[in-house]
Design a binder for these strands. Structure first.
Lengths: 220, 220
DNA sequence: ACCTGAACACCGTTCAAGT
DNA sequence: ACCTGAACACCGTTCAAGT
């Protein structure tokens, strides 16, 4: 019966499996501990609290998404990657909900968004168009809503500058887009994007596409 | 200090206000009771449990959506209605999450979907195209995911027939679409729609729209 | 130093005792 | 018949007592 020693990885894998089994709303620290044959407090050696557990579970799921294809046009690369993400999220139906419920996006989610933006940018799309497109993707296409950024924290300027350059290192495309958006926008405060505009942009792509298909159906 | 007597409506309005204030995850029956100056068990006279409270809160929000415009083309009518729904959901940021978390869509949500489908159908779009379009709307555009139907319950045939005709009375457009989808589909079981197809349909409208805008930007 | 049982401050909801 | 306090079966997490 001697179980392998507890590790963060084993805790996270068990949590993912348990959430698949009993649903995310029924997942509790106590039940997870029981599943691992361990006293509840033992979990706190590997995750500082339940929020960190949920973050870790998200990262397990994100790791299942295939890396972007190389040597294809942007459209197929984006298409493949999104369909791969979809498979990962379908395997764990609670995943989208948990991703959206996190206070801040996890690094793995940031990586996914950054590399997705990178596919459009290296494909030649402008920063602005890419920005709109990322919004337009919406939660159904991207697998989760991209309204993940808090942009509320008014930390001191030094901290902010340090955070920004760390950010630029790690997530170059997200940073590029954030800078472009904040320059474009009149208001200096806030996330620097006009969400109403973004919403209507997505809506109109869809409505125009639908109208086009409708006309084609009438003509055919 | 004499508060007006408790009623379902007053309970629901207080719950909506409290959720706006403290967030949906912090909303509890006990806190809601305290807010209303009432013992926790008093709430159970007006809602049978917390799930029914959440359903009721959803209906309060749905009631804030403007009815469809009359005498305009389908495209503007759809556009206006969606933007109105967006305003209602933005006023209560927890609303989308709660709508998606419900086991079954509430009648008010069904009404919204049915009248949205009605706008496309009376605008002349085919049942099939309308079906794809509703899927394509995605949660960002529609305000919440439309994957709301359980389609698991294999009730007895009589019950099912009775449920179907009640459904057709109340939600004519939803019913029409459901019937068309189940005829089109090879597999008789299940919801009768190929979700992978629907996902790719939405994805391709978006990608084609993006490619078109990109070409226009290059040419201009 | 590490581990863990008991305890604390919460939940939603049942149930029996009070009016 | 109605109302409600206490109780039950849960939570996540703190903390002090045990090794």
């Amino acid at each position: 019966m001697a179980r392998p020693p507890l590790s963060k990885e084993r805790v996270l894998r068990a949590a993912v499996a348990l959430a698949d089994d009993i649903g995310i709303e029924a997942l509790s620290m106590r039940k997870l501990a029981q599943e691992l044959g361990v006293v509840p407090m033992a979990l706190y050696k590997h995750v500082t609290n339940k929020d960190e557990l949920l973050d870790g579970m998200v990262d397990v799921i994100m790791a299942q998404i295939d890396p972007p294809a190389v040597g294809t046009d942007w459209k197929s690369a984006v298409r493949q990657r999104i369909l791969s993400a979809r498979q990962a999220l379908l395997r764990h139906r609670w995943a989208s909900q948990v991703i959206e419920s996190r206070a801040a996006p996890t690094p793995a989610v940031m990586d996914y968004l950054d590399s997705m933006i990178g596919l459009f940018r290296t494909g030649g799309l402008s920063v602005d168009l890419t920005h709109h497109v990322m919004h337009a993707m919406g939660s159904r296409i991207l697998g989760f809503s991209q309204e993940l950024f808090d942009d509320s924290g008014p930390a001191n300027p030094e901290e902010q500058a340090a955070a920004m350059s760390a950010m630029a290192q790690r997530y170059p495309y997200i940073t590029e887009m954030a800078i472009a958006a904040s320059h474009t926008d009149e208001s200096v405060v806030g996330s620097g994007c006009d969400d109403q505009f973004e919403f209507e942009f997505a809506l109109d792509i869809l409505l125009d596409g639908i109208a086009r298909l409708h006309r084609a159906a009438m003509a055919g």
